[in-house]
């Protein structure tokens, strides 16, 4: 979908932002560019919508060199979200969201429907439509920013530290919501952040940048299990295993219900269990991460728990199962 082919960017003042970078972003995935400040990740992103032009090499969009595409046309098909949000304070929330559809000449009724649709998608009340952005909180403003970027159904969404300026709780909420939205919109996303935790949480693929180059480009699991260099290891930081648990869903390690049929008095029915511990009030679901399921087990003093989806037991998660996954992870490192 988007291909960087030996791209080098040198600024007029002589600083080299990135040097000879090559990687490919697959359609429909979220690729996170992560690294310390000044590593060239933002420059790399801005090469996609041609806010920067490469000094050497080329960026391909659907197989076509972006330099041969009209930059205005290109940008209108690429959503763009930045940390500072950059809402137009002189326009209402609705007008902000309508910007690109208007530039593209959509008819009024279609724009109108689209605004409502996006407000709903971003969990913003309809009354916001006619309000001005200055009246909103930081989290609400960035929801509008994302809605505005998604307005014209872009093929690609570029997000430059979109949640970086928010407080930790709002950031967490927005990350979770955005993960859910991501599944619904199925857009190719390039996401820039300096936080490895955010990268692990949001990315299907992660490109780790050192100064001006990509040192590892892989899935979150692979990066945690097999950091390519010492730099990557340092960048991941402490608690690698804990991080691995955090990004692994229960569905990856759960056993089928039948394997533990003897352990449950009510197979396939409820979350009630028979291994002597407390009843679980909130059993994990297949998409819950291993870290919180493990905590659930510890808190309830149990060795296993049913995995419940829509009121049905769909599998069993066991402490030994998690342990063995944990061990596999270390062995791989």
């Amino acid at each position: 979908m988007i291909e960087f082919d030996s791209v080098t960017k040198v600024y007029p003042d002589g600083t080299t932002a990135i040097e000879d970078i090559s990687f490919t972003v697959e359609e429909g995935t979220t690729t996170v560019l992560v690294g310390p400040s000044g590593c060239g990740k933002t420059t790399t992103m801005r090469l996609v919508n041609r806010l920067e032009e490469p000094t050497d090499g080329a960026v391909y969009f659907d197989g076509e060199n972006t330099r041969s595409v009209d930059e205005i046309e290109l940008r209108r098909n690429i959503g763009y979200v930045i940390q500072e949000i950059g809402l137009f304070d002189h326009m209402t929330v609705g007008e902000n969201i309508a910007t690109v559809p208007e530039l593209k000449g959509w008819d009024e009724a279609r724009i109108d429907d689209r605004i409502d649709e996006l407000l709903e998608l971003m969990a913003l009340p309809r009354e916001f439509r006619d309000q001005y952005p200055t009246e909103l909180s930081g989290g609400q403003r960035q929801r509008v920013g994302v809605a505005r970027a998604l307005a014209a159904d872009p093929d690609v969404l570029l997000m430059d530290e979109p949640f970086g300026a928010l407080d930790p709780i709002t950031r967490d909420d927005l990350q979770d919501e955005f993960l859910a939205i991501q599944d619904r919109i199925n857009t190719t996303i390039i996401f820039v952040t300096h936080s490895i935790n955010e990268a692990l949480k949001m990315g299907d693929k992660i490109a780790i940048f050192d100064v001006g180059e990509i040192v590892q480009y892989d899935t979150p699991h692979e990066i945690l299990a097999n950091p390519a260099t010492e730099f990557v290891e340092d960048f991941i930081g402490e608690n690698r295993l804990l991080k691995q648990l955090s990004i692994t869903p229960v569905s990856d390690v759960m056993d089928p219900v039948e394997a533990h049929a003897d352990q449950f008095d009510d197979v396939g029915g409820t979350a009630a269990a028979a291994d002597g511990g407390e009843r679980l009030s909130d059993p994990p679901s297949p998409s819950t991460d291993l870290r919180s399921s493990f905590i659930t087990l510890l808190e309830a003093d149990r060795s296993m728990s049913p995995v419940v989806e829509d009121g049905e037991v769909v599998g069993v998660i066991t402490e030994s199962g998690i342990r063995s996954h944990f061990r596999d992870g270390t062995e791989g490192a």
Binding site: N49, L51, R75, I85, G86, F88, L103, G145, L158
Partner: peptide
């Protein structure tokens, strides 16, 4: 005008006149 506002506008494909 804040740089971020202009950045956002350019990023969404406004021409100089727009």
């Amino acid at each position: 005008i804040e740089q971020s506002t202009l950045d956002a506008a350019r990023g969404m494909g406004m021409t100089d006149n727009e």
